[in-house]
Protein backbone atom coordinates (compact mmCIF):
# COMPACT_ATOMS: atom_id res chain seq x y z
CA UNK A 1 0.00 0.00 0.00
CA UNK A 2 1.32 3.39 -1.02
CA UNK A 3 1.56 5.79 1.91
CA UNK A 4 0.14 9.16 0.93
CA UNK A 5 0.28 10.93 4.28
CA UNK A 6 2.69 10.07 7.06
CA UNK A 7 2.36 11.80 10.42
CA UNK A 8 5.12 11.02 12.89
CA UNK A 9 5.53 12.20 16.46
CA UNK A 10 3.48 15.32 15.85
CA UNK A 11 3.28 17.53 18.93
CA UNK A 12 1.99 21.06 19.40
CA UNK A 13 1.30 22.45 22.83
CA UNK A 14 -0.64 25.66 23.43
CA UNK A 15 -0.16 27.96 26.39
CA UNK A 16 -3.43 26.73 27.94
CA UNK A 17 -2.00 23.20 28.13
CA UNK A 18 -4.14 21.83 25.29
CA UNK A 19 -2.79 20.69 21.96
CA UNK A 20 -1.78 17.47 20.27
CA UNK A 21 0.74 14.99 21.64
CA UNK A 22 2.88 12.54 19.71
CA UNK A 23 0.41 11.79 16.92
CA UNK A 24 1.45 8.98 14.59
CA UNK A 25 -0.73 8.14 11.64
CA UNK A 26 -0.39 6.71 8.14
CA UNK A 27 -2.95 7.32 5.42
CA UNK A 28 -2.80 5.09 2.36
CA UNK A 29 -3.80 5.61 -1.25
CA UNK A 30 -7.54 5.21 -1.70
CA UNK A 31 -8.34 5.78 1.97
CA UNK A 32 -11.31 7.93 2.85
CA UNK A 33 -10.11 8.59 6.36
CA UNK A 34 -12.48 9.99 8.95
CA UNK A 35 -10.83 11.96 11.75
CA UNK A 36 -13.24 12.02 14.67
CA UNK A 37 -12.94 13.72 17.99
CA UNK A 38 -14.85 15.91 20.40
CA UNK A 39 -14.53 19.69 20.27
CA UNK A 40 -11.07 20.82 21.33
CA UNK A 41 -9.52 17.38 20.76
CA UNK A 42 -6.94 18.87 18.38
CA UNK A 43 -8.32 17.89 14.95
CA UNK A 44 -7.96 21.34 13.41
CA UNK A 45 -4.51 21.82 14.98
CA UNK A 46 -3.31 18.58 13.38
CA UNK A 47 -4.83 19.57 10.03
CA UNK A 48 -3.32 23.05 10.18
CA UNK A 49 0.12 21.55 10.70
CA UNK A 50 -0.46 19.10 7.82
CA UNK A 51 -1.18 21.99 5.47
CA UNK A 52 1.59 24.32 6.64
CA UNK A 53 -0.63 26.85 8.42
CA UNK A 54 1.03 26.08 11.73
CA UNK A 55 4.44 24.88 12.84
CA UNK A 56 4.65 21.88 15.17
CA UNK A 57 6.75 21.89 18.35
CA UNK A 58 8.14 18.56 17.20
CA UNK A 59 7.43 15.81 14.70
CA UNK A 60 6.86 15.92 10.98
CA UNK A 61 4.23 15.40 8.30
CA UNK A 62 5.19 13.89 4.98
CA UNK A 63 2.88 14.06 2.00
CA UNK A 64 3.86 11.80 -0.92
CA UNK A 65 7.25 11.48 0.80
CA UNK A 66 7.89 15.23 1.04
CA UNK A 67 8.04 16.99 4.40
CA UNK A 68 5.69 19.96 4.79
CA UNK A 69 8.37 21.58 6.93
CA UNK A 70 11.25 21.42 4.48
CA UNK A 71 9.74 20.74 1.02
CA UNK A 72 6.43 22.57 1.29
CA UNK A 73 5.81 23.21 -2.42
CA UNK A 74 6.45 19.59 -3.41
CA UNK A 75 4.39 18.30 -0.49
CA UNK A 76 1.38 20.50 -1.32
CA UNK A 77 1.52 20.12 -5.08
CA UNK A 78 -1.05 17.33 -5.19
CA UNK A 79 -3.10 18.44 -2.19
CA UNK A 80 -6.41 20.26 -2.00
CA UNK A 81 -7.84 21.38 1.33
CA UNK A 82 -10.38 23.25 3.38
CA UNK A 83 -9.18 24.08 6.87
CA UNK A 84 -11.59 25.35 9.54
CA UNK A 85 -13.67 27.51 7.17
CA UNK A 86 -13.92 27.66 3.39
CA UNK A 87 -12.48 31.06 2.53
CA UNK A 88 -12.61 32.98 -0.73
CA UNK A 89 -12.09 36.59 -1.78
CA UNK A 90 -15.49 38.27 -1.30
CA UNK A 91 -14.86 41.03 -3.83
CA UNK A 92 -14.34 38.48 -6.63
CA UNK A 93 -16.76 36.09 -8.34
CA UNK A 94 -16.37 32.30 -7.93
CA UNK A 95 -14.93 32.14 -11.42
CA UNK A 96 -12.36 34.87 -10.64
CA UNK A 97 -11.49 33.20 -7.33
CA UNK A 98 -10.81 29.88 -9.03
CA UNK A 99 -8.87 31.61 -11.81
CA UNK A 100 -6.55 33.01 -9.11
CA UNK A 101 -6.04 29.57 -7.53
CA UNK A 102 -5.53 27.93 -10.94
CA UNK A 103 -2.36 29.96 -11.54
CA UNK A 104 -0.49 27.81 -9.00
CA UNK A 105 -0.99 24.65 -11.07
CA UNK A 106 -0.17 23.49 -14.58
CA UNK A 107 -2.84 22.60 -17.12
CA UNK A 108 -5.90 24.08 -15.46
CA UNK A 109 -7.95 25.78 -18.12
CA UNK A 110 -11.28 27.58 -18.05
CA UNK A 111 -13.20 24.41 -18.85
CA UNK A 112 -11.83 22.77 -15.67
CA UNK A 113 -13.04 25.78 -13.66
CA UNK A 114 -16.51 25.40 -15.18
CA UNK A 115 -16.37 21.67 -14.51
CA UNK A 116 -15.71 22.06 -10.75
CA UNK A 117 -18.33 24.80 -10.48
CA UNK A 118 -20.80 22.42 -12.12
CA UNK A 119 -19.77 19.54 -9.82
CA UNK A 120 -20.39 21.67 -6.75
CA UNK A 121 -23.63 23.14 -8.10
CA UNK A 122 -22.67 26.81 -8.30
CA UNK A 123 -22.04 27.18 -12.03
CA UNK A 124 -25.06 29.43 -12.46
CA UNK A 125 -23.61 31.85 -9.89
CA UNK A 126 -20.13 31.89 -11.44
CA UNK A 127 -20.15 35.63 -12.16
CA UNK A 128 -21.80 36.86 -8.95
CA UNK A 129 -19.67 38.41 -6.21
CA UNK A 130 -18.93 35.96 -3.39
CA UNK A 131 -19.80 38.60 -0.76
CA UNK A 132 -23.48 37.99 -1.61
CA UNK A 133 -23.21 34.21 -1.10
CA UNK A 134 -24.76 32.21 1.74
CA UNK A 135 -22.55 30.09 4.02
CA UNK A 136 -23.53 26.96 2.08
CA UNK A 137 -22.60 28.50 -1.26
CA UNK A 138 -19.24 29.64 0.13
CA UNK A 139 -18.69 26.08 1.36
CA UNK A 140 -19.45 24.74 -2.13
CA UNK A 141 -16.97 27.21 -3.59
CA UNK A 142 -14.39 26.07 -1.02
CA UNK A 143 -14.89 22.48 -2.13
CA UNK A 144 -14.63 23.55 -5.79
CA UNK A 145 -11.31 25.24 -4.94
CA UNK A 146 -10.09 22.14 -3.11
CA UNK A 147 -10.74 19.79 -6.06
CA UNK A 148 -9.74 22.27 -8.78
CA UNK A 149 -6.24 20.92 -9.39
CA UNK A 150 -7.40 17.27 -9.45
CA UNK A 151 -5.43 16.62 -6.24
CA UNK A 152 -4.50 13.11 -5.20
CA UNK A 153 -5.04 13.96 -1.52
CA UNK A 154 -7.89 16.11 -0.25
CA UNK A 155 -7.86 17.33 3.37
CA UNK A 156 -11.26 18.55 4.53
CA UNK A 157 -11.95 20.03 7.94
CA UNK A 158 -15.72 19.95 8.57
CA UNK A 159 -16.59 19.98 4.84
CA UNK A 160 -20.33 19.83 5.43
CA UNK A 161 -20.50 23.00 7.55
CA UNK A 162 -23.29 25.25 6.37
CA UNK A 163 -24.63 22.82 3.78
CA UNK A 164 -28.31 21.93 3.62
CA UNK A 165 -29.44 18.27 3.47
CA UNK A 166 -29.35 18.28 -0.33
CA UNK A 167 -25.85 19.79 -0.26
CA UNK A 168 -24.67 17.16 2.24
CA UNK A 169 -25.93 14.32 0.05
CA UNK A 170 -24.31 15.88 -3.04
CA UNK A 171 -20.98 16.30 -1.22
CA UNK A 172 -21.05 12.74 0.01
CA UNK A 173 -21.68 11.58 -3.56
CA UNK A 174 -18.87 13.79 -4.83
CA UNK A 175 -16.39 12.40 -2.29
CA UNK A 176 -17.38 8.82 -3.12
CA UNK A 177 -17.21 9.52 -6.86
CA UNK A 178 -13.70 11.00 -6.59
CA UNK A 179 -12.51 8.20 -4.31
CA UNK A 180 -13.85 5.49 -6.63
CA UNK A 181 -13.20 6.99 -10.08
CA UNK A 182 -10.01 8.97 -9.51
CA UNK A 183 -8.64 7.01 -6.53
CA UNK A 184 -8.41 10.28 -4.63
CA UNK A 185 -7.39 9.91 -0.99
CA UNK A 186 -9.41 11.86 1.57
CA UNK A 187 -8.62 12.98 5.11
CA UNK A 188 -11.86 14.29 6.57
CA UNK A 189 -12.64 15.64 10.00
CA UNK A 190 -16.27 15.97 10.94
CA UNK A 191 -18.46 16.06 13.99
CA UNK A 192 -21.31 14.48 11.98
CA UNK A 193 -20.70 10.86 12.99
CA UNK A 194 -23.45 9.43 10.82
CA UNK A 195 -22.02 11.15 7.80
CA UNK A 196 -18.51 9.88 8.53
CA UNK A 197 -19.94 6.37 8.86
CA UNK A 198 -21.53 6.65 5.41
CA UNK A 199 -18.53 8.24 3.71
CA UNK A 200 -15.28 6.96 5.25
CA UNK A 201 -13.62 3.55 5.01
CA UNK A 202 -11.12 4.13 7.86
CA UNK A 203 -11.67 5.97 11.10
CA UNK A 204 -9.24 7.51 13.56
CA UNK A 205 -10.32 8.85 16.93
CA UNK A 206 -8.56 11.77 18.51
CA UNK A 207 -9.16 12.45 22.17
CA UNK A 208 -7.38 14.97 24.39
CA UNK A 209 -4.79 15.52 21.67
CA UNK A 210 -3.93 11.82 21.29
CA UNK A 211 -4.96 9.26 18.69
CA UNK A 212 -6.74 6.61 20.74
CA UNK A 213 -7.62 4.18 17.96
CA UNK A 214 -7.60 3.66 14.20
CA UNK A 215 -9.65 0.99 12.45
CA UNK A 216 -11.59 0.33 9.25
CA UNK A 217 -15.28 1.20 9.17
CA UNK A 218 -16.02 -2.38 8.20
CA UNK A 219 -14.31 -3.76 11.33
CA UNK A 220 -15.92 -1.20 13.57
CA UNK A 221 -19.41 -2.00 12.30
CA UNK A 222 -18.79 -5.72 12.85
CA UNK A 223 -18.36 -5.08 16.58
CA UNK A 224 -20.61 -2.09 17.16
CA UNK A 225 -24.15 -1.24 16.10
CA UNK A 226 -23.05 2.15 14.82
CA UNK A 227 -20.04 4.38 14.61
CA UNK A 228 -21.57 6.50 17.34
CA UNK A 229 -21.49 3.53 19.74
CA UNK A 230 -17.85 2.87 18.83
CA UNK A 231 -16.99 6.56 19.35
CA UNK A 232 -18.70 6.63 22.76
CA UNK A 233 -16.93 3.42 23.73
CA UNK A 234 -13.45 4.62 22.65
CA UNK A 235 -13.85 8.03 24.23
CA UNK A 236 -15.32 6.41 27.35
CA UNK A 237 -12.21 4.28 27.76
CA UNK A 238 -10.08 7.42 27.73
CA UNK A 239 -12.24 9.73 29.75
CA UNK A 240 -15.83 10.90 29.88
CA UNK A 241 -18.09 11.73 26.94
Amino acid sequence: METVLEISGLTKLYKNGRGIFDINLNIYKGDVFGFLGPNGAGKTTAMKIMTGLMLPDSGDVKIFGHSVLTEFEKAMNKVGCIIETAESYPYLSPYENLKLFARFYDDIDNSRIDEVLELTGILKFKNEKVKNFSLGMKQRLGIAAAILSKPELIILDEPLNGLDVEGMIEMRKLIKMLAENERTTFFISSHLIHDVELTCNRIGILYNGKVVNVDTTENILKNFASLENYFVSEVGKNGNV
Binding site: T51, G52, L53, F72, E73, K74, A75, M76, N77, V79, C81, I83, E84, E87, S88, Y89, F101, F104, Y105, A145
Partner: peptide, 9 residues
Protein backbone atom coordinates in the same frame (compact mmCIF):
# COMPACT_ATOMS: atom_id res chain seq x y z
CA UNK B 1 -4.74 30.83 4.42
CA UNK B 2 -6.17 30.62 0.88
CA UNK B 3 -2.72 31.23 -0.56
CA UNK B 4 -0.76 29.65 2.30
CA UNK B 5 -2.37 26.27 1.57
CA UNK B 6 -1.36 26.42 -2.11
CA UNK B 7 1.97 25.01 -3.30
CA UNK B 8 3.91 28.22 -2.77
CA UNK B 9 6.54 28.68 -0.07
Amino acid sequence: KITLTRPVS
